[in-house]
Design a protein around this nucleic acid. Structure first.
Lengths: 338, 338
DNA sequence: ATGAAAGCGCTAACAT
DNA sequence: ATGTTAGCGCTTTCAT
């Protein structure tokens, strides 16, 4: 099977006996082509199955009609955002490109700028960035950030009410009678993580429970880190009766550790996560969690972006918006009365 | 906030006082640049935050180190495949681009060729196509198909055992004592849909239950179509006690209709789907379904593709493989004894 | 109505 | 070691 190259505009022109320029005009419905000629060109296009190269086209033109979703990695969270963006883009005539590139080794931050640099100005007309960590992105195209690090002056942002979410998690565990509650915290550099912890601590405080530092261990939003620290936490003599993990990925890692240690769940240990990613719903027992409406966040981000893209060029630039969606407790099977 | 354009290689060259070619050499670690010069160039690159344009670069070179996932739309199924592909691509040094473009009006088939034409040869080194419907794709780059229409001679394929899956669905309902069982069939042009129905019919036959044509209504894998036909089905005087929907999306639509009609679920009606998309697990009660390991299918497809891409150029081309993964019954809350 | 030619940002072969 | 140049596929003036 010899991979037959895709036909180029040159081959179409050759076959139709016209110039490349004429073919281009036909394809883009420009004036100044005789109907007979256009007909002939279209026939050849159909015959050869020609379709213009997105790459070449976007290098030459301003407008590409493509929206980018830039992510550090395609995991459940960003995939969910992606679905939301697709919900909105569908039917608008825009095309959708999701771009994920492994960070260079040891480089967790800065991918936003690189991704944007590699695609912006060409290929995409605008972008939704998922969980960017850099604040001073010099933007060549309109951008909307989903769940970003703190301090994106000028960037429209969509996120969830992480503060109240942390509060909800603590309240749920307190309602169940738990008092020795640990937390696997999130990535210290992320706004969302800070707020979840802050809300959590506040709720504990309101219940009159002093926050014990040794019960706050790093989870980093990273299953591997979480696994290590959950193990340490659960093998202590006075292990906690409940754990709040800053996101579902680390909550699931915690469940795995508990299982390995033979700890009865939820009898001897309650675990609550944050995010409500599909994976939490699909395991047994289902993971109790604080939901943030991820897909809806994608939808709202896409809407915001499309608004900017379709706004009259001369229109006064709207101030950067900040959309904050509600979080919500989802009780499943991993939490129980102490 | 004036969108500052991304810097180009020209600006870097200008700033560093060298030619564009020299900058390119430095960036690509080519020989023939004095260390002092290289140093200076790198400094400017860092300073300006320059990153080469993926588009321009891919237009010029053969190799882009980018893998494409081409989909008609980003819905739960394709998103799940995408995650699987990302699992494998992660850490390989390849970048990942997912591309979705709305079909032109009324054109459900043919997107494969268009997508491939728009990206192939440029931008991507190879592609995973999700649920393509066209068999005679003239491929400019290596391609692996996930869950394709029948008859892709020469294309490596990854799919699930749909035949046995249909069988499993029927067996489950029969075991629960159901005898008047309806099916919302899938898209008639898709291999997967045909096999699911075939397996389902076979199991009914083995149980000595004659297949009643009026109990097979089209679902088309489409929630809207399913909703309409499920309504018709459930308002008949002799409505079925159980429904097998050819995929989860249509099963969920069926649940919605049943709810609207006030039918007790699963007391008065059992519903089983196919796919095990996250949405089925997240609703209440959870959807009983036949699981196909979608994410794993994405992983296997990505592996197959990477094998082809990294194979020695001179190596004998391996024959097109066909990987078929097992399906599995997942019992949740929407099926019960009759 | 048509085509020649320039140029988008980049790389690579070929001078110097 | 560095620069000049051609060209990837396409669109868009500008001649003709």
């Amino acid at each position: 099977m010899t991979p037959s190259r895709r036909p180029t505009i040159r081959e179409v022109a050759l076959e139709a006996g016209v110039s490349v320029a004429t073919v281009s005009k036909v394809l883009n419905n420009r004036y100044g082509v005789a109907e007979a000629t256009a007909e002939r060109v279209r026939a050849v296009v159909d015959d050869l199955g020609y379709e213009s190269s997105l790459v070449a086209r976007s290098l030459r033109t301003q407008q590409t009609n493509v929206i980018g979703v830039l992510v550090a990695d395609l995991e459940p969270f960003s995939a969910e955002v992606l679905k939301g963006v697709a919900d909105v883009v569908r039917g608008t005539g825009y095309e959708l490109v999701a771009y994920a590139a492994a960070s260079r080794v040891g480089e967790h931050i800065g991918w936003e700028r690189r991704h944007l640099s590699r695609l912006g100005g060409t290929l995409i007309d605008g972008a939704v960035m998922v969980t960017p960590t850099v604040t001073d992105i010099s933007t060549s195209v309109p951008i909307v950030a989903v769940d970003p690090h703190a301090g994106h002056p000028g960037l429209p942002v969509v996120d969830a009410d992480n503060l109240n979410g942390g509060h909800l998690a603590a309240e749920h565990l307190l309602d169940l009678g738990h008092r020795r509650i640990a937390m696997l915290t999130g990535r210290a550099d992320l706004m969302s993580a800070q707020l979840r912890e802050q809300g959590f601590r506040a709720a504990l405080g309101e219940a009159g429970i002093p926050a014990a530092d040794q019960l706050f261990v790093p989870g980093d939003y990273d299953p591997d880190v979480a696994e290590k620290n959950a193990y340490e936490l659960l093998t202590r003599p006075d292990r906690p009766t409940a754990i709040f993990a800053a996101n579902d990925a680390t909550a699931l890692a915690t469940l795995e550790v508990a299982r390995r240690l033979g700890i009865d769940l939820p009898g001897a240990l309650s675990v609550i996560g944050f995010d409500n990613i599909p994976d939490g719903a699909m395991c047994t027992p289902g993971l109790t969690t604080v939901e943030q409406p991820i897909r809806e966040m994608g939808r709202r981000a896409a809407k915001l972006l499309l608004d900017r893209l379709t706004a009259e060029p001369g229109t006064e630039e709207a101030p950067a918006e900040h959309i904050r969606l509600d979080t919500r407790l989802v009780v499943r099977g991993t939490t129980a009365h102490v």
